[in-house]
Simulated assay, not measured.
Amino acid sequence: MLTGCNAASTDKHTLDVLFIAYDQGESSAFLQIEDALTKKGIRFNVLALGRAAAVYKDRANVIILPEEVDPAALTHKRAGLLSSADLAAITQKCQPSVVYTGMASAVQAQLSNAFERRGSKVIAFYDNFDTAVGNAWIRPFLDTIKHIDELQVPTEQTLASFHHIDKLKDTRVTLVGQPALEEWDKVFRAVDARALREKLHISPSDSVVLFAGGNINDGYKQAFQRFVSAAAQLPRVQFLVTWHPKFDGTFEAEVVRLAHSGNIHRVDKAIASTAELCKLADVVTTYQSTVGAKALYKGKPVIYIAEKSYDNFLILAGLAERVSTVNATVKAIKDKLADKETKVSLSPLGMPDKPSSEVMRRIVEMLES
């Protein structure tokens, strides 16, 4: 009999999954997978620790942790672990058939090990598009994990990279894509592009370029300055600016104000989200944001404004362009706008069209095996 993690999921016909989330990126993917499982009638629960605690704060199906455990306490401690008493208290709350965990922290591995010892099968999900070799943020997880039944990855490139990690040489690695990308499918279906243009006072005939803000550091500041300088040289194009949710947008607002260019508009999130604005955009620019992958997934040409040393899987695959000067930024935007009818996609990376459905299929197979 498959037992669940709460009273509502103890029916003997229930197939139970426990998600263990830590980071924002994997949480975004898990939310899409959860939707697919719900439609299939598979019940699940979530253990949310670290940054994921805020993501899941008001959602159903989240396991209530013991009072002495602060779910956000490990936010900046990827190598942090639970005490033996806390680990026992949490694992005694349920016995899932499958544990589906991210790889962002040691505590996820610690919990997975504990559930595996009690009979759970473990699926680990690598949510990053960059190669796993030399990727420091997964090291605490890899150093702590004892056994993985299946490792799921987003692209053929990341799949190949795991073959070079000795600890996982005998682990089954499966290409499933990145479910987090599907978050924008819902947004694009819901957005009325014409109505949003009217709301922003943008003519139907105007070309639109979006800058998606990121974490503020010296490199980001330089990149944004280059973007604004380039935008000022293209007065017939409308430029929209958003900022990273960790910040308040004052940096971007000040740079835009000082530019004195009427075609550059910082858009408040109360008016439209980055995803909604992307629906309008003919071209999407950013510094090093994951918005680039989501925009490409939706067929938008992407330009990274970053230092010459910066690379990512999209740039290396020739799917996105990197520019490092104002003049190069102006040229890249002009070229993309002139060729905006050409559709781009992530298909060269070998990603499945519906990642969440692919993940669900593998989970169901494991539950039924």
Rank of each mutant, 00 (worst) to 15 (best):
C5N: 01
C5Q: 11
A8D: 15
S9D: 14
D11A: 08
T14K: 11
L18R: 11
L18S: 08
F19T: 04
Y22V: 06
S28K: 10
Q32V: 02
E34T: 10
L37A: 01
K40F: 06
I42N: 14
N45A: 02
L47W: 01
L47V: 04
G50H: 05
R51M: 09
R59Q: 09
R59V: 01
A60D: 15
I63P: 15
I63H: 06
L65Q: 11
E67C: 13
L74V: 04
T75W: 05
T75K: 13
A79L: 03
A79F: 11
L81K: 04
S83T: 02
A88H: 06
A89L: 03
I90Q: 11
Q92H: 08
K93T: 11
K93H: 12
S97I: 04
S97T: 05
T101Q: 05
A104K: 04
S105M: 09
A106W: 09
V107A: 06
V107S: 12
A109R: 08
A109F: 07
Q110R: 04
S112Y: 06
S112C: 03
N113W: 01
R117K: 13
A124M: 03
G134L: 01
G134K: 06
G134A: 00
R139F: 14
P140T: 03
L142V: 08
I145E: 11
K146M: 08
I148E: 06
D149N: 12
D149P: 10
E150I: 00
P154D: 05
E156R: 05
T158S: 08
H163S: 15
H164I: 06
I165V: 05
K167L: 09
R172Y: 05
R172N: 02
V173P: 13
L175S: 00
P179S: 04
L181V: 02
W184G: 15
W184R: 06
W184Q: 14
D185T: 02
K186L: 15
F188R: 09
A190I: 08
A190K: 12
D192Q: 07
R194E: 15
A195D: 12
R197P: 14
L200R: 07
S203K: 01
S203G: 10
V208N: 05
F211C: 05
A212D: 07
G219I: 00
Y220S: 10
Q222P: 13
A223D: 14
F224T: 01
Q225P: 08
R226Q: 15
F227S: 07
V228C: 12
V228N: 09
S229T: 13
S229W: 08
A232V: 06
L234S: 10
L240N: 15
V241S: 15
V241K: 09
V241D: 12
T242K: 03
H244Y: 07
P245R: 02
G249R: 11
F251M: 06
V256G: 08
V267Q: 14
D268T: 04
K269N: 10
A272L: 05
A272T: 13
T274M: 13
T274A: 11
E276A: 04
D282W: 00
V284I: 03
S289K: 02
A293K: 09
K294T: 04
K294Q: 14
P301M: 05
Y304D: 09
I305E: 10
A306M: 01
E307R: 14
Y310D: 12
D311S: 09
A317S: 11
L319R: 10
A320F: 03
V323Y: 13
T325K: 01
T329R: 04
K334W: 10
D339F: 04
K340S: 12
L346F: 07
P348S: 09
M351T: 02
S356I: 01
I363F: 07
E365M: 14
